[in-house]
């Protein structure tokens, strides 16, 4: 009874937050509401007993996306000041009726597809869960989600890392920012923030390593650990700490491609030796997964930090 009540409140809060995000007339309010929406969504994932997705949602959907949106807002404001443009937010109510009709139709079609997909799901008892649990023994890990991500569907994870790499390469080339040295050095902030970051960075690294280690037997893993690492890097930069600018150019590039490269190398090795791409030897599966996850963590952290840092002011744009 209490559970149902809690779930109903959660659903209502989700819908309300989503509605408010679309309907708020103020940019800042919309961004803050979007972050709130992400946090409620993370809670919903916890209720659905999917803590892996909950951690990812809280870290990416709420925190990282929130920081990116807030930063975009800062840039928009400074651009708006320069050009003195009318920078009104187009709220849903003000859109032309054609747009409204189009989005309404899309949502309707999507809802029908989703509902039909869900009704089809209920027939298969638990989907592939039993199969995963049956094969877990020799997969090299004790956590089913990690087993799926890095063993059974390692191919997908490899492609995902490729997508992330493409995204960061796209941003870097559009910004014409080939390395961290072409960025304007971070602006010094208050001593309070700097001290907090200095104190909290070891903890960030510890948590990242802990999440990576935990992925072997419980919710956690490369993606969550990587996001924590990336968030730490962004925090360092935002607090005006210059340590990231000292990162060697080659090191940064290697860190960016490390995850993708590790999958490619292990995949090619298994392709040559067994004829199957990314097939693990049962004996070495767990050490292979550990290596892949560590490489992926570093790459994901660097990629996410790179995505954010590439949007910061460049040296050549600074007034001399």
């Amino acid at each position: 009874m209490t559970d149902t009540l809690f779930d109903m409140t959660l659903c209502a809060a989700l819908i309300l937050a989503a509605w408010r995000v679309l309907h708020s007339s103020d940019h800042f309010q919309a961004v803050v509401l979007f972050i709130t929406f992400g946090l409620i969504l993370a809670l919903a994932w916890v209720r659905l007993e999917a803590p892996d997705i909950a951690i990812a949602e809280a870290a990416v959907g709420a925190s990282l996306a929130g920081v990116m949106l807030l930063d975009a807002l800062r840039v928009m404001r400074s651009v708006g000041k320069e050009h003195e443009q009318e920078k009104r937010w187009t709220s849903v109510a003000k859109l032309p009726s054609f747009h409204l009709f189009f989005s309404f139709a899309t949502v309707l079609i999507l809802s029908v597809v989703l509902i039909s997909a869900v009704t089809e799901l209920s027939d298969a008892q638990g989907g592939l869960t039993d199969l995963v649990h049956a094969e877990l023994e020799g997969s090299g890990t004790k956590h089913p989600v990690t087993a799926v991500l890095l063993n059974f569907r390692g191919y997908d994870t490899w492609i995902e890392l490729g997508v992330l790499l493409l995204a960061v390469l796209g941003v870097l080339s559009i910004r014409e920012c080939s390395n961290l040295h072409s960025l304007a050095p971070p602006v010094a902030t208050t001593i309070v923030l700097e001290n907090l970051v200095r104190g909290i960075m070891p903890l960030v690294l510890l948590v990242s390593g802990y999440l990576l280690w935990r992925g072997g037997f419980a919710p956690g893993g490369a993606f969550q650990a990587g996001v924590v690492l990336g968030a730490g890097c962004i925090l360092l930069w935002m607090a005006g700490h210059r340590s990231l600018t000292m990162l060697h150019d080659a090191t940064w590039r290697i860190l960016l491609i490390l995850g993708f490269l590790a999958f490619l190398a292990l995949g090619s090795y298994s392709l040559l030796s067994t004829g199957v791409f990314l097939a693990y030897d049962r004996q070495y599966a767990s050490i292979q997964i550990f290596l892949l996850e560590s490489a992926a963590t570093l790459s994901i952290g660097t990629t996410l930090a790179g995505l954010m840092l590439a949007l910061q002011p460049l040296k050549k744009d600074l007034p001399r």
Partner: peptide
């Protein structure tokens, strides 16, 4: 402890 640190710093930043 982490929330204490973060919230007092955030509070200082907003106040500042």
């Amino acid at each position: 402890l982490t929330v204490l640190l973060a919230s007092s710093t955030a509070c200082f930043l907003v106040g500042n």
